[in-house]
């Protein structure tokens, strides 16, 4: 599963803000230059970024296998020409194929970020970017989601196991969906009530102490790269 892994790569040592800047700049450049030349240059850059994060490209690709059916279906359907006496017009499929490839590149760079950035750093970056209580809400909310995701996945898994053991799988799909949804929502609401009580007991406040974010010398090239990518993208748009 795609998640943070501790390590000593260059990307691990960067500030989360410069990594987010590079990531967004890369996406902007990929959307601005969806041409064979632009995308081949960006492929090289994406491979360099993955190398800097010591993430193997094939592993990162495997994480995104669920979007591949879409990425393959769209160019194929676009190329389909039922009216012209031929089955497939390759030229019609090219723009969609390029766009699909662009998505793969953006996903690879995003995978490098996810692999090298601990949640606490991401939270600190969010609260740095969005000031005030909105940022606090987003920051702590995201941290809670990370904390409770495995718990609720286990809840849902147990509910399904129990249902299966009682031959619930023989029932119609609509009923199965309803049973599972009701049981999981009730568990989630119970947990939320208990969690809220626990938070209040621990003086849940708007201003907790977070890790200090600090740019190091390594971040300078990162920020420069991100800014350059944005500038290149802006140049294409203007």
């Amino acid at each position: 599963m795609l998640s943070y892994e501790p390590g000593g790569s260059v990307a691990h040592r960067l500030d989360p803000r410069s990594k987010l800047l590079v990531q967004c700049g890369f996406a902007a450049a990929a959307f601005a230059y969806t041409t064979p030349r632009g995308l081949s240059a960006l492929t090289g850059l994406a491979l360099c970024l993955l190398a800097a994060a010591r993430t193997a490209p094939h592993r990162a690709l495997w994480e995104f296998r669920f979007v591949f059916p879409f990425l393959l279906a769209v160019p194929l359907l676009d190329g389909l020409a039922l009216t012209r006496g031929v089955w497939f017009v390759a030229a019609d499929a090219v723009p969609a194929a390029l766009a699909s490839y662009r998505v793969v590149l953006v996903a690879l760079v995003a995978a490098a970020y996810v692999r090298t950035t601990p949640v606490r750093d991401s939270r600190a970056a969010v609260q740095w970017a969005v000031p005030g209580r909105t940022g606090q809400f987003l920051g702590m909310g995201v941290a809670f989601v990370f904390r409770f995701l495995p718990v609720l996945r286990a809840d849902v898994g147990r509910i399904r196991d129990g249902y299966r053991a009682r031959l619930g799988t023989e029932r119609p799909v609509s009923e199965r969906i309803r049973t599972l949804a009701v049981a999981s929502f009730n568990r989630a609401f119970d947990r939320a009530d208990r969690f809220a009580l626990a938070l209040r007991a621990r003086c849940f406040c708007w201003n907790p102490t977070l890790p200090d974010l600090g740019f190091s010398r390594l971040d300078a090239p990162g920020i420069a790269l991100g800014a350059l990518l944005f500038a290149v993208a802006a140049y294409a748009v203007v």
Binding site: M1, V103, A107, A110, V145
Partner: peptide, 30 residues
Amino acid sequence: AAMVLYLLAGALGAPVFSGGSAGIGVLLGP
């Protein structure tokens, strides 16, 4: 607000999108 948290957590690396994928790449994907 809950949905915003869901998207943000996914963008920052929680495996919450279909099949356990995560990252800005999914949000910018098809």
